[in-house]
Design a binder for these strands. Sequence first.
DNA 1: TCTTTTCTGAAATCTTTTCTTCATATTCAT
DNA 2: ATGAATATGAAGAAAAGATTTCAGAAAAGA
Lengths: 290, 290
Amino acid sequence: MSENASTIAELLQNNADNLTRAERQLSQSILVNYPVSGLGSITAVAKSAGVSTPTVARLVKKIGFSGFPEFQAALRNEVEATISDPIAKHDTWAGQAPDEHIVNKFTEAVIENIRHSLGQLDIATFDKTCELLADTSRSVFVVGGRITRSLADYFFLHMQVLRKDVTHIQAISNAWPHYLLDIKKNDVIVIFDVRRYETSTLRLAEMAAEAGAKIILFTDQWHSPIAKLADHTFSLKIVVPSAWDSSVTMMLLVETIIADVQTRTWPETRQRMEELEVMFDRTKFFRKFT
Amino acid sequence: MSENASTIAELLQNNADNLTRAERQLSQSILVNYPVSGLGSITAVAKSAGVSTPTVARLVKKIGFSGFPEFQAALRNEVEATISDPIAKHDTWAGQAPDEHIVNKFTEAVIENIRHSLGQLDIATFDKTCELLADTSRSVFVVGGRITRSLADYFFLHMQVLRKDVTHIQAISNAWPHYLLDIKKNDVIVIFDVRRYETSTLRLAEMAAEAGAKIILFTDQWHSPIAKLADHTFSLKIVVPSAWDSSVTMMLLVETIIADVQTRTWPETRQRMEELEVMFDRTKFFRKFT
DNA sequence: TCTTTTCTGAAATCTTTTCTTCATATTCAT
DNA sequence: ATGAATATGAAGAAAAGATTTCAGAAAAGA
């Protein structure tokens, strides 16, 4: 029996010589479909090995656990280690800084947010959203909340270049009714709403829904109440080691959507961009770029 | 949303809109470390999600299982399938979409940007920047360009809560001279400038430098001409498969800086946030969030 | 604001699992 | 073959887990 076994499989193999007939039978059974076969109840494990439950209990004690639950917990950890992505962890992002530096911890959290959010992303929702936004027969309205207004603005800024009929509904809720007058059936309204969800944004969504607009919602994992009204919802993980939530994932998705819409509207967009270029030249707004 | 869910993850996502607050919290908890996190006892699952066991029982019934054991058995099958299939997932970001889908290509590019930018990041620059921004004896001015104005706004929004004396210099360049009157020696000016570099932003930087302000610059890998004037420069990679540049890396860095400044100014910030909280309560601006 | 509805978790109850005991079966040495 | 030592599983006790009930809390509606 060797001292330092890091897996249960090793533990079983190391003890192979001390096992009785029934125990060996059980051990083999566990190893055959390792480690998943040990995940059921003690009864199930015993049954699938063709031995009695006391045999299972005795074996796990023999190899060093206090009881079946402890054995199973160890097994679960192994499963977890097997499943979790090996390249995900232990990447230090800012090589100069130690792992515990905020830059590395924060980035790690953001990457995890991206991984998790995109893992859940429904691709049909994405495609349908881009299709709606690329349809120039529909007007597009963009609205954000207290914090997300920057994102809404960023999105608006790009969409405005890509296509016509894009409006940014600004924060002051008193002005909303005026915008609402313009929202027609089948127009598209893009709403950013993360916790803490704002009452006024919900009201706006309700009115837009009544007007027959298609609602596209960007929200967090806890879902804004607008989700019930939305045609397409993107739910993103936004948790970082900070008193604030992170908007990085949302911005990534926004940019991706912009890129996709652009390819869809390219003929029109190309022309718009060229015109814009001419105007920039005239106003000498930018420095010559080499 | 698709009807026939083949995994519990899909089942949870499909039902996302029908879930209550606690259920959603639980659902997220299960998905975070999916599928291993659902493998413990109902008590363990509930505890790790921070909800009660009845909530777990209710959720699994809601998504179509007869009870927790049945749910768990299904989960075990998935684990088994995942383990026995070595080339499982995690190669692509949005598992549902093919590698060549824009979501995966774009994300891949963004991650590469982050990796590259942070690899180059000088940690002393980062620390010094945060120190400057946390120093409330200095006023802080924030300015962005045509596209980066959203980022400047985002940064301003947070800094404004963290500390006093923060000003967002808005886009209209005619108004800039007025702001400049207020910039004193040793004040801090945070400038966002990516290609195409704007002439007016450069002029502003020059004037700020003359006034003796500390200049912090966020720019791209090709360096804005302002870099010559800046005390601290962050150069970030912003290339993505799109006609546009990506601001994701910049936003990540901005958020990280906000998080770090916050820990430095916490005593003051805490009070400011509490006061803000009271004001929100009074105005009922937000919905109650638990 | 007040009422109604919905949600949530503490506690009680019921179920299953795990562990222990012990009688019987098996093996091994002589 | 016989007895001693060991192994094994049936059965029941103990523990843990799962489910249900219900009252208080939160949200929605009026």
